[in-house]
Design a protein around this nucleic acid. Structure first.
Lengths: 206, 206
DNA sequence: CACTCAATGTTAATTAGCCAACACTTTCGT
DNA sequence: ACGAAAGTGTTGGCTAATTAACATTGAGTG
């Protein structure tokens, strides 16, 4: 579907134009390498990124609102690929896939906690929403594949997807901000139990 | 100095424009990776290159006459860097630097013979000229640094540079096309002796 | 042979990227 | 605290890259 996003809206910018794809790719890649070098998000400037990407600074603003907008889409892309890697291409709603999904979310946050670390008290907000949307979409696909006969309640699938996705993402966010006294696996199992229970009014997951 | 080169001349194309630099860089890089994969120059199409480079095919022709023009500038750049690596940044005309230069030329040809190998009977011509120009330029720089008093004959430096550069490049070409019964080191030493002798009417090399 | 199919060059019109200059704001160093 | 230096967004005019269309040339294949 690919909504147009970014939108300083000075220029529309067609997301299918090869130049656009390449420019975004270059910006993403530049951001990644800078992150690996500097290890601190806040010390990376827009100028750093555009120089590394061999892209004009003005062009950056044609694609992203600011540095954090880039960070968001970058995280989202990374997250999307991480989930794709862990979940079978055309998976369905089952205990096993549910477990894989939840674990993948916790693992993802564990991985990217490292970029957040040096007394980075000013927490980088915002991208939870983007990641939640990814999870929500997966659930929507799953729920749409379920035959109507198996649905115990016909309450809107949309709402179910929203609730469950937050029920997974929220704990992951809180876990990564805290001390991680529990392992990702332990957390995933606990969350799984509750999610399955939460789904019971809607569908019996096996 | 960077002369404008390429020149299908449908469009001028300003070599200082960052987009131009990036596009050429992408084409070069794409060509390199394809060469490493396919190992045969003739089986690489312009389409392959532009696809890999994420550049439109028409754009290719705005920069290069054809596939071999790209090959030429690519070889030249590679050659240029190879020489820079072997020669001290601001070297002068001495036996030692002369030896280093000649050896570097033979080594370069030895390296790139591999891309020429599979019964590649249709020999890829042309780029000898580009490489010769590189050598010629080095000699011109060297000769211009020599104090006029040390020059035995004032015959144009230009001509000297042309003759000597061919005296080095020619044997290297012939050597690489043949059986390489002698090693690059042996060849370099033999050529060195003759070149020094050839320079004697002009300047005494130590 | 005729006949696809793929690659090569070339063109005019459209679109995205580059630049330089601007008014701010933030960060520092003395 | 103040001034310099560096970063942030924004704008209009120019330039290069993209596109789709075309004619042409091989390289197979029935």
């Amino acid at each position: 579907m690919e909504s147009a996003r970014c939108d300083g809206m000075t220029t529309p910018v067609n997301a299918n134009d090869p130049r656009v794809k390449r420019t975004r790719q270059l910006l993403m890649q530049a951001f990644l390498t800078l992150l690996e070098e500097k290890h601190n998000i806040h010390s990376i400037s827009v100028q750093d990124i555009t120089e590394r990407a061999t892209v004009n600074r003005a062009t950056f603003y044609a694609h992203f609102e600011d540095k954090y907008a880039l960070l968001e889409t970058w995280m989202r892309a990374k997250f999307h690929r991480a989930l794709e890697r862990q979940l079978p291409a055309s998976s369905t709603l089952q205990i096993s896939t549910l477990h894989a999904l939840i674990l993948a979310v916790f693992d993802f946050f564990a991985t990217f906690r490292s970029y957040q670390k040096p007394a980075d008290k000013q927490y980088v907000p915002l991208f939870e929403v983007a990641l939640q949307q990814e999870i929500q979409e997966i659930f929507l696909n799953w729920l749409n594949q379920v035959p109507a006969s198996a649905l115990i309640s016909q309450g809107t699938k949309e709402t179910t997807a929203v609730v469950i996705s937050w029920a997974i993402l929220g704990p992951a966010v809180q876990w990564v901000r805290g001390e991680q006294t529990n392992s990702a696996e332990e957390m995933a199992n606990q969350v799984l139990t509750i999610v399955v229970a939460g789904l019971s009014p809607v569908i019996a997951v096996t």
